[in-house]
Design a protein around this nucleic acid. Structure first.
Lengths: 128, 128
DNA sequence: ATCTAGTTGCAACTCAGTCGCAACTACTGG
DNA sequence: CCAGTAGTTGCGACTGAGTTGCAACTAGAT
């Protein structure tokens, strides 16, 4: 556990929204100016492998990069509005059931899952 | 509808598995040698926007790129084995129900959806 | 046959993410 | 408390996916 990792960890813990690697870098550098881009990537890879963070695309609403968020107790769905860009999260028992079905019917051990939906949010749906 | 688009379309229609952009380029060039990388990207973007193909990450089992597949009547889940790399597809009514729930409970119009699961397939689960 | 809007190939570019390496640092055992 | 070492870091150079500006070129309408 190094200074740099502590800084990155702390950024992830306190983040209020989905951050991409360069945003994480900038925020981590405010805590420890020595943090390097490659350390961020290396640490993110580590955290991902250990199942502590989730990696998201958010339907590529802004470019090709990835977003990261701390993995919480319950998985959630990400919905991205293709019009206004808003990201909504949604927790659903149906989702849990679906994963259980996969485990059972496909005899597949589920470790990570990512459900992203693109479409129109309630507001934009009306405005459209 | 140009020669080049016809070639790319044809590759997508006849593909037996998930292809990335460079594989699509190579295959398309066998049908029309003039096809350029940028045309492939431009056409894929177009097809994606029109909802004719789906874009996948396949849990980044091999690098950062994207994979594409023709969108069929029914959506399906992609499961990627983190040990042997096998990709399995699975059609589920639960998945349809889940999307309906999102439409209803979140008043969110679902246009595209992508559910990817990483874990261990039946074979590797035993071998592990 | 002509015109034009849309498409293409090309080459140069951007940007995310990776890698090799020498310098460094957090922990171990003495 | 200190030396040894395994693992981590910063740096700079690199890779590879995807994009873009532009002049040349179609496909299809008139």
């Amino acid at each position: 556990m190094t200074q740099q990792r502590r800084a990155i960890l702390s950024v992830m813990e306190t983040a209020s929204k989905h951050l991409d690697a360069s945003q994480i870098l900038r925020k981590a550098q405010k805590l420890d100016a020595s943090v390097d881009r490659s350390t961020v990537y290396r640490t993110l890879r580590l955290l991902k492998r250990h199942g502590l963070i989730d990696e998201l695309d958010l339907m590529h609403i802004n470019g090709e990069g990835h977003y990261y968020e701390r993995k919480l107790e319950r998985d959630h769905i990400h919905m991205a509005c293709l019009r206004c860009g808003k990201i909504t999260e949604f927790v659903s028992d149906e989702f849990e059931k679906l994963k259980q079905q996969v485990e059972k019917d496909c005899r597949f051990r589920v470790l990570v899952s990512r459900l992203e939906i693109g479409g129109y949010c309630a507001v934009c749906r009306g405005a459209q």
